[in-house]
Simulated assay, not measured.
Amino acid sequence: MTDGPKKTPPQDDNRVRDTLVKMTSIRGGNRFQVITYSDDGGADDKMDYASMAKAVRDAREYIRGKEGLVYEGALVYDKAERRIVWQFGFFPESALPR
């Protein structure tokens, strides 16, 4: 064994993650994510979807009480573009994905 200086890994500024997310979305992966909001529990990641239409449909169902719980808000987040594409109901600024 050597007692030389240890190499530290290079700093990652999310470039690798961003590239992997884009590669997955190109292959038809789970590009869209549904996130719900309730006063009790705050924001909660639900499922990921390959289809924006399916994600939008399920986001609406969460507002209507899909799991027996009625959420105050739901949104569809595009992981490849890193932006919100649909928002339903109330979602406070502090709970929005960044």
Score class of each variant (00 low, 15 high):
E67S: 03
T2I: 10
L69K: 11
M52V: 15
T24Q: 01
A50K: 12
K54L: 13
M23F: 08
V21F: 04
V76A: 00
S51F: 03
M47K: 14
W86Y: 15
R60V: 08
D45Y: 12
A80I: 03
F32I: 06
Y37R: 02
P9C: 01
E72Y: 00
I26W: 07
M52H: 08
G41A: 14
G73P: 07
L69R: 11
F32R: 04
R15V: 06
T19H: 15
V70I: 10
D45E: 14
T8I: 04
A43E: 10
Q33L: 15
K46F: 01
P92W: 01
S38F: 02
L69W: 06
Y71D: 00
I35P: 07
R27G: 09
K7D: 02
R31P: 04
G73M: 00
L75A: 04
G42C: 06
D12P: 11
T8S: 01
S51N: 03
R83F: 00
E61A: 13
P10I: 10
T8A: 02
I26C: 03
K7G: 00
L69P: 01
N30L: 14
V34H: 06
S38K: 04
I63P: 08
K54A: 13
Q87I: 15
R64L: 06
T8R: 04
F88P: 00
R60A: 12
Y77I: 05
L20I: 13
F32K: 11
D44F: 15
D13P: 08
I26L: 12
V85R: 03
T19G: 07
E61H: 04
R98E: 12
S38I: 12
M23C: 02
E81R: 14
G68D: 07
F90R: 15
I26F: 13
D58Y: 10
M1K: 09
I84L: 10
R31M: 05
R17H: 05
S38H: 04
E72M: 05
G41P: 06
D58Q: 11
E72Q: 10
D3T: 00
P92G: 03
K22V: 08
K6G: 01
L69Q: 01
K46L: 14
P5D: 09
T36L: 11
G28W: 12
G28V: 05
G41Q: 09
G41E: 15
P5A: 05
R64E: 11
M23V: 09
T19Y: 13
W86Q: 15
